[in-house]
Write a protein that binds this DNA or RNA. Structure first.
Lengths: 335, 335
DNA sequence: ACAGATTTAGACAACGCTGACATTTGTGTT
DNA sequence: AACACAAATGTCAGCGTTGTCTAAATCTGT
């Protein structure tokens, strides 16, 4: 249990009989080291189990680290994780590592968490904005840290952003329902992600307006109350005197709820969800899908581009969505 | 676009008219600073948008950082990210952040990835071992970095570990099938996670042996070939002349495949999966479940304990599993 | 064989912070 | 008013690395 201390450049240098700068050159792959010395240094390093200290290196280099932060609201949503996976992959290609931080969906903690990350001198900041004001990041951005806003645009901050084709995707879904005769279409969503839900709602209304349906309030379930489960929202739609013949969900939580309620319903109700999910194919659930990992990859790429060219213009990228027909969205309205 | 440089302790000190040590005391919350000076320092810091440099701090403090690494094989498996969520939560309570690194399920890259993390002086290392030898971590462990092996024990390394009750959980599942008369029970699994699958297979065989069934090879599908999808494995069982009346799956991938094939089968085949999954309740799929987040939380806690008391004994913790009856596991064998 | 170019190696300081220690200022006691 | 003692503040060096600069060793071509 001897807790010896860690070997440093100097220790290796002493053992190899060279200067610490030479050891540094070997490990920084800076060249100009003869094959012989190089070999000796490596042997000594291995003997001492030497690992270069990245803290010191980053400090010396002016605070440039190899880590990029991804700030997330809530880790338990599989959506975020796929995004994270995409980010991680893209970063790994450039030898960067990802640190993951969560704000527990609390707007207050966002700035605290981000502050802590800045203290760690992350190279870039990717975040899913929760708070309704990201202006606190303006200074950081000016200092050259790329900030990329994921899934929703940042507020009061000029930053790159990657979002989905929310409005269009949802409009397409609803259009596919109106095309086969549906007019009474319910919309359920949980609005924790305000921006995306608002956009999707707009797409829903837009598509209905195209076929002359303007009064949609009665079919919209956007309860703020987290206690109102998607299941209840769906049920409340079915309980309406003039109940919908089709339902669309604004996100995967809604889909899961809808699936539970709608399965084995006597006169079947058509359904299309936003966000694909595991087994949706087996269940025959039509969804508006998109490449979640690509969302992450694109975000990472934007950050990396900005790192490479700090003067680059800010970009807003939209990830395309596509409607996948699996049956539940093709159910005809009862005659 | 002025890329000014970042403010340092010294800058703040100058503006506030105090020494940099005083500023340091304010930010390190080290006390012994009068309310007045404290206030002035904070004002100056805010004006300069000062953020303490954690790199320098960690370096000065002897390489003690606030980050804990979690090394994962493949981010896309929902299992891993629930574990990660648990870890993140537990760490956040102690003000630590999690860095996530993946090895792409490649044994070769494991050591490289871990090396890089050590260079970053992570405070502790949690990993899901992929390579079949973790002895390369021995030095690190001796240097005082807690190493916790998650989901499988480490090999050739004395480290804490948290695993599931694999054998018992699977044995219980199979016993519940034999109890209602099943004798011909198929086992499918993809062996990317060798250890867990071996254990679960052992549990399966054990339970069958208890009722006198010893020859099980024909019903085991453990193909190494990643091209053989779980769907095909299930199908091949059904195609047997003496086909099983029940099937158990060694992991969630297998369950997903089984669900696809088994749904709407004429004489229904009983099924129990290992690992719970979204909508399993709606689909009526019986599973061996456990608290995935707890797995992560426990791992993090082990690491933190070791950090608090470096001399603590290594522990092997088993997370309990429980069989959830939802219908698919209660299907009786055809008479 | 020799000047000049090039490659290899080392000395030194500094990145931003804090621990150890020194010094100043404030408070309470008699 | 003089003293002991605690609180507030400052000085300085060094954590492990690398950029800059300089010196020595080695390689060119004629």
């Amino acid at each position: 249990m001897t807790t010896q201390s860690r070997a440093t450049l100097a220790d290796v240098a002493r053992l190899a009989g060279v200067s610490s700068k030479t050891v540094s050159r070997v490990f920084a792959e800076a060249g100009n080291v003869s094959a012989d010395t190089r070999e000796q240094v490596l042997v000594a390093a291995k003997r001492l189990r030497f690992r270069p200290n990245n803290l010191a290196r980053s400090l010396r280099r002016g605070g440039v680290t190899n880590t990029v932060a991804f700030v997330i609201g809530d880790l338990t949503n599989p959506f975020y994780f796929h995004v994270a996976a995409g980010i991680e992959r893209e970063l790994a290609l450039r030898g960067l590592t990802m640190v993951l931080a969560t704000t527990d969906d609390s707007p207050d903690s966002e700035e605290r968490v981000v502050d802590a990350l800045i203290s760690q001198r992350v190279r870039a900041l990717l975040l899913i904005p929760i708070a309704d004001d990201q202006s606190y990041l303006e200074g950081e951005r000016q200092l050259g840290t790329p900030v990329v806003s994921v899934d929703r645009p940042a507020r009061n901050l000029l930053a790159d952003s990657v979002v989905l084709q929310n409005r269009l995707g949802m409009a397409e879904a609803v259009r596919s329902l109106t095309a086969i005769g549906h007019r009474k279409i319910g919309f359920i969503s949980n609005p924790s992600a305000m921006y995306t839900q608002r956009e999707r709602l707009a797409g829903y209304r837009e598509a209905l307006r195209e076929v002359g349906v303007v009064e949609t309030a009665q079919w919209e379930r956007l309860d703020d109350d987290p206690d109102i489960s998607p299941e209840l929202a769906v049920q409340s739609l079915l309980d309406l005197p003039d109940s919908p013949t089709a339902i669309v969900a604004g996100n995967n939580r809604g889909s899961a709820g809808a699936v539970r309620v709608l399965r084995n319903l006597k006169p079947p109700v058509a359904f299309i969800g936003f966000d694909d999910f595991e087994l949706a194919d087996a269940l025959g659930i039509s969804v508006v899908a998109y490449d979640t990992m690509e969302l992450g990859r694109t975000a990472a790429r934007l950050a990396l581009d900005h790192l490479a060219d700090p003067g680059a213009f800010t970009q807003q990228i939209e990830i395309p969505t596509r409607l996948i027909h699996r049956g539940s969205g093709e159910i005809l309205p009862p005659r």
